[in-house]
Design a protein around this nucleic acid. Sequence first.
DNA 1: GTGGTCTAGACCACC
DNA 2: GTGGTCTAGACCACT
Lengths: 121, 121, 121, 121
Amino acid sequence: MPWDFADGLPIWRQIAVRIKSDVAGGRLVPGEKIASVRDLAVQAGVNPNTMQRALAQLEQEGILRTERTSGRYVTEDAAVLEVLRGQLASGIIADLYCKLRAIGMDDDQIVAAVAAWKDEG
Amino acid sequence: MPWDFADGLPIWRQIAVRIKSDVAGGRLVPGEKIASVRDLAVQAGVNPNTMQRALAQLEQEGILRTERTSGRYVTEDAAVLEVLRGQLASGIIADLYCKLRAIGMDDDQIVAAVAAWKDEG
Amino acid sequence: MPWDFADGLPIWRQIAVRIKSDVAGGRLVPGEKIASVRDLAVQAGVNPNTMQRALAQLEQEGILRTERTSGRYVTEDAAVLEVLRGQLASGIIADLYCKLRAIGMDDDQIVAAVAAWKDEG
Amino acid sequence: MPWDFADGLPIWRQIAVRIKSDVAGGRLVPGEKIASVRDLAVQAGVNPNTMQRALAQLEQEGILRTERTSGRYVTEDAAVLEVLRGQLASGIIADLYCKLRAIGMDDDQIVAAVAAWKDEG
DNA sequence: GTGGTCTAGACCACC
DNA sequence: GTGGTCTAGACCACT
């Protein structure tokens, strides 16, 4: 997992985004227990504290649920998951528009290009 | 300009991508002379050799043209510019599909979401 | 039972307050025998001497009564119990006024808020 | 400032509550700059990290606003302040009811006692 | 073993 | 000087 130290985004936020994506994409199953803070920290090659911070953020957003003595679980709240997907998608798409506008495309061209890519690419 | 030393992409490639984007977006005007290697290197905060390598790459792709005695110029070749835009857009759009598929969206949903964003966002 | 070693209040006083609350609230029944010093000390996780001191204090206030040969009993004196309730309540209410004034409420607002809470909360 | 290590509430939460109370009570003036993280940490006798955590929490609740290079400021948002006062008051009053019920008072008696205290005490 | 807290000290970007 | 991040390592409570 390549953490970008160069951009402004803190590692714990990058981790949070990654886990969000995993939850949204179903690679982390709702209701399932996730690995322990320490294990995740080792896997990610960061300090347990940093991982802790990312997970605390996710818990506070309702994406994870903590059972103090047994571990952390992915939320089963469908509404939360739906909102999560919407937020992630919105951010990604906004980024797309930003970059394509920067190379001189207008919004209609962007939509057309995305639609065309589906058929070709 | 945040160059990313962490991922595998060499800095000179990152610079080349940025300049391509500037050309495609018209921030570097076709036919215009660009700054000297040394100045560009200072602006970017990199070694002149690194900048040189990026520019050589762009020249080899036909995006820049060198006049031995006077400096480097942005190509005026419309075909080259068009291909450039296509390449950049394709990469960006491929990235979009990759990320949105990762959060569980299928291609039709992606196209729909991008179209919807144009109207809302 | 979380005894607070940090603030100035000695533990035996904290224990005394707790027992007073139990008597006032009827969790310790007037006329009933209470457990032995040793048992109470174990329950509270403190040294028997500390518990002894708390009980002596309560006895001196007339809340407990010692029968030399059989143990300690909760007073049945209604007047004592009434005074006890009054003292406890007064302390708690004084604390309330202190805290609510500290966040900028005046006495009328405090009374109103307490009355309102009864209906809502 | 006596931090309670005995109860379960983390120090950074206790600090956050205290600062909330200061804001609600006007001891920290809306719009005014507060002391630096390091100074506050020294005043409170805790690690700068711990203070940082408390302040981050308050910022996230909209009570403080951070200007990265100049310092932290108390919000001027009247709505936020009003909600804050309401939350604090509610918590304090709930605590009152809990304690007074524990000594055998019913809700009407509680309201009456609080009203009486205003006139006497 | 789990999550959570706290400390100490370093480093960065910004102005 | 400001806020913010990261690491390393210790300690606690709970089971």
